[in-house]
Write a protein that binds this DNA or RNA. Sequence first.
RNA 1: GGAGAGGUGGCCGAGUGGCCGAAGGCAACGGUUUGCUAAACCGUCGUAGGGACAAAAUCUCUACCGAGGGUUCAAAUCCCUCCCUCUCCGCCA
Length: 428
Amino acid sequence: MYDLKYLREHLDQIRTSLDRRGNDVPWTDIQKLSEERRAVTTQVEQFRYELNKGSEEVARLRRAKAPAEEAMAAMKQLRDRIKDAEEVLRNVEEALTEVALRIPNIPHVSVAVGADASGNVEVRRWGTMPSFSSPPKPHWEIGENLGILDFDRAAKIAGARFSVMTGAGARLERALINYMLDLHTTHHGYREVIPPLMVNRSSMTGTGQLPKFEEDLFRLRDEEYFLIPTAEVPVTNLHREEILSADHLPLRYTAYTPCFRREAGSYGKDTRGLIRLHQFNKVELVAFTTADRSYEELERLTGHAESVLQHLKLPYRVISLCTGDLGFSAAKTYDLEVWLPSQQQYREISSCSNFESFQARRASIKYRSTGGKKEAKSDFVHTLNGSGLAVGRTLVAILENFQQPDGSVEVPTVLRPYMGGMERIKKE
RNA sequence: GGAGAGGUGGCCGAGUGGCCGAAGGCAACGGUUUGCUAAACCGUCGUAGGGACAAAAUCUCUACCGAGGGUUCAAAUCCCUCCCUCUCCGCCA
């Protein structure tokens, strides 16, 4: 979100930039409200100035033991006018903030213009697709045959779009979490975090989920808590309303959390298996940088997510999302898509984005340079995040890509230490 | 859940109605001096919004002492509601 002053002064520029992505922003309302806000603000401040002067006058008269009734009466009237003007100002600012929070981020210049996912650009591919003598099975079939996935019981105890993993399946999920965390903390320089899984409204607003996407979130009935849809929310908000020291940047965090999503509006899509669930596990990467280094950081962070797939030997491709497919808060996004043999297509397994200062403005996350000269001016950080990776979908990819003719699944070498040395998952 | 205490500038901490955007200290930054991995002294030192200026520098006004209301000519200070933190008791993993 843009601060209201910046918004007023750069309205046309912002509007033009956002034409590159579809948007439904009420620009004329914003312009009108912005101007009204400025006018009313000036009026209120003028009144307050008079009031302050009048009050000082009263104080002076009283000290001099002179009668002050007349001045006091005048100020009393002025105060009523101030209250009216303030009421108007409050309403205008509220209305303006409400629409301002719904303005999406401006895409980076390197992002291709396009209306929808068909305009996305493939950046690169990695790995070789496995070949099969008979048609490869979908992961739910493999998992149920092995007795490590149980969707029937998941539906019984919770409902549709939930999963139960058991035995080697549960262990594989846990192995993936530990492997990813170890890789990112030990080799990629991230600091591990275990955050709350429920957060307040301010945090959700800070990272951009609210106010526009409330219907995508699970919310507690009696308390103002939301279940996190991604660890991006609590981890980015770690530094909400903070001013960071420039020598501590970049800050890099990784967090494993379950994620909770309503998946409203996805009826009929991916109804079977682990692809689209109300609850899934994810290892997230989050970075805070200065403006001049954030795109370098995006490449680096994307590379960190890719390295997980490479170590697991899972074929994938990297997609740069076009303007029409870009998320609300993102300026640029790379999606990592893993190959799923049963579907004969690539499916999203990670999404790595640079939000530039979009979230930092909403959440008020700044940095101040300490070294050097006197310019101790603070500025907004750039925030980034990416999945490193979605754990459930990684498990899907392993089951499908490494399925064997006898129905067993080969365990990727790097995971074996985390699986007690197990090389194959066989029917128990 | 019960009882109590408290939330002030980057940090600590004074301040119970006007001259308080806020003493003092620490930290930071600039400078002076001496010099030896430092001290002393001087100065600067919050954030945001409005206006003036072509713009920067600068000047000026307004707001902010957890948040939001209220009382008053005037609120960090009095009243109400909420949020958060701490202590003790209870309960609990």
